[in-house]
Design a binder for these strands. Structure first.
Length: 484
RNA sequence: GGCGACGUACCCAAGUGGCUAAGGGGGAGGUCUGCAAAACCUUUAUGCAGCGGUUCGAAUCCGCUCGUCGCCUCCA
């Protein structure tokens, strides 16, 4: 039984989709006017994991993630770069897809662009006018918030409070300061579409109303996005959609917390952001994903190199164990010496339940990761006891499968140790080829065979300086990339 | 001004009424090792911002205080 926190009620609720095992989920994507930063990555990764977990639980999920490809910021950017709005949108949409691919975030099932749905938006706006919820004004169309009973129910705001706390210049032509644009007339030189109210473009919020109902129906299960979208964006979507259909728009509203830098929200306007591209220059994507899953999705998470380095350590701990497991499985045979798997066996019996328990509790990935590392420790302990034989083999294999299965849900632990180390060499820009490295190890082996310890240590220290750590084992020396 | 969230060890972080307060990183000691590394073991919060209250029992519920942050404007 999955429980999830619903922003609408402010409580954790039992997840019961509108239609059996079918889950329709809409997550607000990006406005394609600039490079994406880590905050965008968090939202993408969080909802990707939620989708993966729901599917793991047997739900049939349809995931829609939109791209806003026409908007004031795009127009401003186009003017600045002296190119068309289409080119701006195309360029940054492409960058976005590229970032998502590098991050290892799966695609949504449907990734609609706003400009492909202008007709549907116009239809929605017409309906809102016909029903008396919207009014045209000098080529614009506004939604009249006072007409929608329940405006503010998602964000917990009251219109009177909004009025008195207004921090923006009020457009006096509107009936209420918080009436928002469904349609904006275009100024000279701006892109436009023909409409019953003249040439113009849609307001931001209406695209999600039009596209979500097109692909997921008038009522659907989950609507997600960053917490900064709660007001006004999602509040306005509710007003538009429910005014249009008279039906419940969304059953569960989910919002991820912010990334902070020096405790402040990472944002374009503060200028304290790091682009996904910049971060992936220094860190492996799996490290970034792990970092973002190491805190609960609704909590703020402080970005820092120290934190990313810790995440790198954690992932490396897994791959070090993965290497041990593989060596064990490739060698073990012979005498049946299952060791004492009791502690490990106990944890194996409870592990899957602990994992799903954590994930069922509002997708508590941080807690789930704790259980994974608990299992890793027990596995290491078991391997330390040097068990052998078929029984031991089956135990280790089963634990390994559990780690891969649960790691798979979290989209981590999905490489071979070699892939991990070679990715680390790349991302840490080590000026050392694997070939040269193996030569050095041979060189050192010769010294060790001669018990020339000072020469052996010299080679090891030299490699350490270059970011490589050597480990001497009974059957030879292996290497790892130094992390952290 | 209105609304809301958060404050757990040296750092990050889970835990939201009841066994010894997960897990990761770091520190100290140990086992192993030619020495290391890795791994494992022990240790590092009689206490969960502070003060009251409810309760047989609270980090967990309630109130107040202090501190930090967010939304109220485009924002993931």
């Amino acid at each position: 039984m999955i429980k999830l926190y619903n922003t609408m009620t402010g409580k954790k609720e039992t997840f019961e989709p509108l239609n059996g095992k079918k889950v329709n989920m809409y997550v607000c994507g990006i406005t394609a006017y600039d490079m994406c930063h880590l905050g965008h990555a968090r939202s993408a990764i969080v909802f990707d994991i939620i989708k993966r977990y729901l599917r793991y639980c047997g739900y049939d999920v349809t995931h829609v993630r939109n791209i806003t490809d026409i908007d004031d910021k795009i127009i401003a950017r186009a003017a600045k770069e002296k190119i068309s709005t289409e080119e701006v949108a195309r360029k940054y949409t492409q960058e976005y897809y590229n970032d998502m691919k590098l991050l290892g975030v799966s695609s949504a099932d449907i990734e609609p662009n706003a400009t492909d749905h202008i007709e549907a938006m116009i239809e929605s706006i017409k309906t809102l006018i016909d029903k008396g919820y919207a009014y045209p004004l000098d080529g614009d169309v506004y939604f009249e918030v006072k007409k929608f009973e329940g405006y503010g129910k998602l964000s917990g705001k009251k219109l009177d409070d909004l009025e008195s706390g207004a921090r923006v210049d009020v457009d006096n032509r509107k009936k209420h300061p918080f009436d928002f644009a469904l349609w904006k007339s275009s100024k000279e030189g701006e892109p436009f579409w023909e409409s019953p109210w003249g040439k113009g473009r849609p307001g931001w919020h209406i695209e999600c109303t039009a596209m979500s109902s097109k692909y997921l129906g008038e009522s659907f299960d989950i609507h997600g996005g960053g917490a900064d979208l709660i007001f006004p964006h999602h509040e306005n979507e509710i007003a538009q959609s429910e005014a249009c259909t008279g039906k419940l728009f969304v059953k569960y509203w989910m919002h991820n917390g912010f990334i902070t830098v020096d405790k402040e929200k990472m944002s374009k306007s503060l200028g304290n952001f790091f682009t996904i591209k910049e971060i992936l220059e220094k860190y492996e994507p799996e490290v970034v994903r792990y970092f973002l899953l190491s805190a609960h999705y609704r909590s703020p998470i402080e970005f820092s190199d120290a934190q990313l380095n810790e995440s790198e350590h954690s992932i490396d701990r897994y791959y070090t164990t993965a290497l041990r497991v593989r060596e064990f499985l490739s060698h073990t045979g012979g005498k049946d010496k299952p060791g004492n798997p009791n502690e490990l066996q106990g944890l194996m019996d409870s592990f899957m339940g602990k994992f799903t328990g954590a994930m069922n509790d509002d997708f508590n990935t941080a807690s789930a990761l704790g259980y994974l590392f608990e299992l890793i420790r027990e596995l290491n302990k078991y391997l330390d006891a040097k068990p052998s034989g078929q029984g031991a083999r089956e135990v280790v294999q089963r634990v390994n499968e559990m780690l891969l299965e649960t790691g798979g849900v979290l989209n981590i632990f999905n490489k071979s140790p070699e892939e991990w180390y070679s990715a680390l060499i790349k991302v840490k820009k080590l000026a050392l080829s694997e070939e040269l490295l193996l030569q050095k190890i041979e060189l050192r082996k010769a010294a060790r065979d001669n018990k020339d310890w000072s020469e052996a240590d010299r080679v090891r220290d030299e490699l350490y300086e270059q970011g490589i750590i050597l480990e001497d084992k009974p059957d030879g020396t292996s290497w790892r990339v130094r992390v952290g």
